[in-house]
Structures are given as C-alpha cells and as structure tokens.
Design a protein around this nucleic acid. Structure first.
Length: 417
RNA sequence: GGGGAGAUACCCGAGUGGCCAAAGGGGACUGACUGUAAAUCAGUUGCGACAGCUUCAGAGGUUCGAAUCCUCUUCUCCCCA
C-alpha cells in the first residue's frame, strides 16, 4: 500500500471522505483508501467486522455511532460481519473498565443476542449483514490450540493496554482469563478474514491485536477504523449500558427526545456529528448562532433531538415528541399520556389516605421519609394543587381520577380499586 | 507455603471505644433562577406519621457502651518463596 496512493481514483477518495466523517482515526493511516481500492480492483466487497458484546440487550446511541458507520459501508456494497461474542462474553471484556466484568450464563447471552439482532436491523441492512457467534470456532479449540494462540502474545504487550496497566498499578484484580480477551477477539478476525474492524476508541488494543495475529497467520491484516466514544448523558463518561447514561435506539420517541434535551450545551456538536446525518456546514451555522446568542441553545437541542428521533422512528414521531416535551417541560403542563396507578386498599383507612403512604404505594417515592421530604420541598402536587402538609389525609373520593405530580416530570393518574 | 494490608451507606472515601445514622466528594432527587430540561445557587439523600428502630463483609466475644478492641469465617490486594 506504499507507492500506490497517488493512483487512487477520485471516486474512491470521495467515498473515503464520506466514510471518515466523525471517525477518530484509521490504523494504519491511509489504510481505508487502500482497502477500498483493493476491493474495487478485485471486485469483491470488503468484509467489515464488528464485535458485539451481548452483556445487556439495549443498543444505545453510542454504539449506534459505529453501526451507522457500518451502514454507510453497506450502502457502498460492502459486507458487514457481526461477531456476537457469545463465547467471549463468558470471559467479559475488560475494555474501559476498572473492574472485572461478571461472566454471563449461556441463557443470558442467547437472550441478549437475539434482542441485539432485532435492534440492529433498525440501523443495518440485513441483506448485507452476516451474523456469526464466536463460540462457533472458539468453542472448538482444544487446550493445545489455546496455548498455541496464547504464545503469540506477551504479558508485556497485554499490560501495555492502559486499562490493564491502570488496574495493575492500582492493585486492582485482573483475572488471567481477562488477559485472553484481546487474543480471542483477534482470532475472530483471522477466522472471518476481516478487512476492516470497526470499533470504539476503547477497542484500539483489541483491534490492533487482530492485525498482528492476522499477519502472523499469513493473512493480509485488517485495518482498524475507530469511532470516538460518545459521551453519555452525564456529559462526563462514555455512554454505556452499565453506567445508565444512555439513550437506547429502541426507546420511545418521547424518551429519546427528552433525554437528548437534557444534554449539556457543550455536547451538542458531538451528538450532531456522530448521531445524525445533518450537513456539517448547517450544523456549524446552528452552533454559531447559538454561541452568539441569536438562537436559544434549547432550540438547537430540539433540532438535534428531532434529527435523532427521525432516524430511529419517523419525522412525524419527532414532531410529536417535540410538541409533547415542550408541553411537559417548557410549559409544565400535563402530558397527554399519563401512566395510571391504583391506590391499594391497604393504605386506605376510614376512607382516607395519608399523602405520604399514597406517594409510596404509587411508586412515586421510595419511602415515607422521602415522600415527606418531597412535600416539604414543594415538589408534590395533587390535581394541580401543591401539597403543603406532609401529614395531610386525603379522602378517597378526591382520589379517583386525580393526577399526582412529583417533581417536574413524574405523573400518575390515580384510580381507587 | 510464609508474611503484611484491607472490606464503611448508590459509588468513592474519612472515621481506630462514647460527642457516630457515621466527615468530604461524586451521583441522585427537590427547589430557586435562567436562554432550557443546560449552567449556577440552595436544600435533601438508612428506615420510620419523627416516639423510636436497624446499619459500617459474616458469625461469635470483651465492655456500662463497639464501625472502632479480641477470635474465627468469607472475599480482595501486596510482598517473599
């Protein structure tokens, strides 16, 4: 791939440019154009690998960053190979973690995997997607082969990886089996003859390990295409299932929309670039107006949220969600759909219910202590009336059909059993 | 195999006989304000209709009194071999 770079046709360079939107880096640099050209010359689509870790079934926007990139490749005729890490899930990927991951049972893995594939089709083109379970080959390795594989990597190499290094230096436990993770992922690349492996930046080590192993085993090495990690809703850590700071791609338009509206102003750019298809020049203009005070950042966020909801649902759903969120959050009115809750009979005494018990029994507070606190802080309203007294008893006749509101955004419609 | 260190509330982490329901931070929640749901500021954050009750890995023990001292158990880390 050394001296041919100037021969790359214009068309492929354009493709490359589009494919590089939002990417963090390509390893080795320039490798993408080379792969595209090889594919064109041979007339075979590229095999683009993505490993999935079926630990938890929700696919979130952070992960979708990578998926959407895969879709771009598919639209150019390339083949996506998804590796469901059913076998490696038994190990637990240590990437980006400071603690050992729990191992999963086979049943959990299987259940998660099927949910995964289901959700994936929201982004990917199924006809150009091959789904493989790495247990298919990893499960067949005997001990001698495993040891043989292990001999291709040294402890020093593995300890280079920052998360291992960190844990090692801080005296946090590292189990031996975790050290095998990069190698087993690398072996996946060998088996499926991967041309490109996609991943978040946290996958750098694993993906490069794949390159090394392929080279050692006489294959043309894959290139690594790295996407930046999307910052989670907390604005600090990467978006992840286990941290709970995520937006799932299967979530309802309303949930998606309102979560996106709660990101900090600084996060908007990344979200636009990585989670939407918005024209980048247009985005710059929006952000500029926002910074200069011409536009309320809230409205730029609305645009962002609309773009995202449109991708996973529809334009109509986005507009609806927008209106709904404005109604609830900006105007602080009642949402159109209010979940209902039944007031259980055991909290009713002589036709009356203590307000704190009511809050607890309808799931609005975790204990009467919290309920009391919420009332004292003025966060509880019953049918629009602020509840001022935490000792208040409410007669049942007042409750049927009444709306109980806690904080700015939690509502239930009451009914008496 | 031997020696040492450690396990504290959602998380991190102080506390080494009573003043400890346990500092501080993070997170979460509520309120005020705003340009919004962001930012900022304030309050709350074991349970409890507030009298009390149950917590500091688990089980026993010492003591008027234990997160703190002793014994055993479980788990983790370090060092030596």
């Amino acid at each position: 791939m050394t001296d041919k770079s100037n021969e790359i046709p214009e068309e492929l360079l354009l493709q490359e440019k589009r494919l590089l939107r939002g990417t963090h880096s390509v390893e080795p640099a320039g490798g993408l154009a080379h792969k595209l050209m090889v594919s064109k010359q041979r007339g075979t689509p590229l095999r683009i690998k993505l490993g999935l870790d079926p630990t938890s079934p929700d696919i979130h926007l952070g992960f979708a960053v990578v998926l959407r990139k895969l879709r771009q490749f598919q639209d150019l005729g390339h083949q996506v190979v998804l590796i469901i890490g059913d076998y490696t899930a038994l190990i637990g990927d240590p990437s980006g973690r400071s603690a050992t991951r729990p191992m999963l049972s086979q049943e959990e893995v299987a259940a998660n995997a099927s949910t995964y594939v289901d959700q994936l089709s929201r982004v990917l083109d199924r006809s150009r997607t091959e789904v493989r379970f790495n247990g298919e080959w990893l499960g067949k390795l005997d001990f001698a082969s495993v040891v043989g594989l292990l001999s291709r990597m040294t402890v020093a190499q593995v300890l280079q990886r920052h998360d291992f290094k960190e844990r090692f230096e801080q005296n946090h436990p590292i189990s031996l089996h975790e050290l095998m993770y990069p190698l087993s992922q690398a072996y996946d690349s060998v088996i499926i003859h991967s041309d490109i492996e996609m991943g978040g930046l946290d996958q750098t080590f694993n993906i490069l390990a794949g390159r090394e192993l392929q080279k050692e085993m006489g294959q043309e090495p894959q290139i690594g295409l790295f996407m930046p990690l999307l910052v989670g809703l907390d604005g600090v850590k990467k978006m992840s299932k286990s941290l709970g700071n995520y937006v799932g791609i299967a979530e309802s338009p309303i949930d998606m929309f309102s979560k996106l509206m709660s990101i900090t102003d600084e996060m908007m750019r990344d979200y636009f670039v990585l989670c939407t298809d918005i024209d980048l020049d247009e985005m710059e203009a929006l952000l500029k107006d926002c910074a200069s005070g011409v536009t309320n950042p809230r409205d730029v966020k609305r645009r962002l949220a609309q773009e995202v909801v449109t991708i996973y649902h529809s334009k109509e759903a986005a507009i609806e969600a927008d209106a709904e969120c404005i109604r609830v959050h900006s105007s602080r009115e009642l949402p159109t759909e209010i979940p209902s809750a039944v007031v259980p009979a055991e909290v009713i005494e002589e036709g009356k219910v203590w307000i704190c018990k009511l809050l607890v029994s309808t799931g609005m507070a975790s204990g009467t202590g919290e309920a009391r606190r919420l009332i004292q802080q003025g966060g509880v309203k019953l049918d629009g009336e602020k509840v001022a007294d935490a000792t208040q008893l409410i007669s049942v006749s007042q409750l049927e059909g009444a709306v109980l509101k806690v904080g700015a955004k939690r509502f239930v419609k009451l009914s008496v059993s």
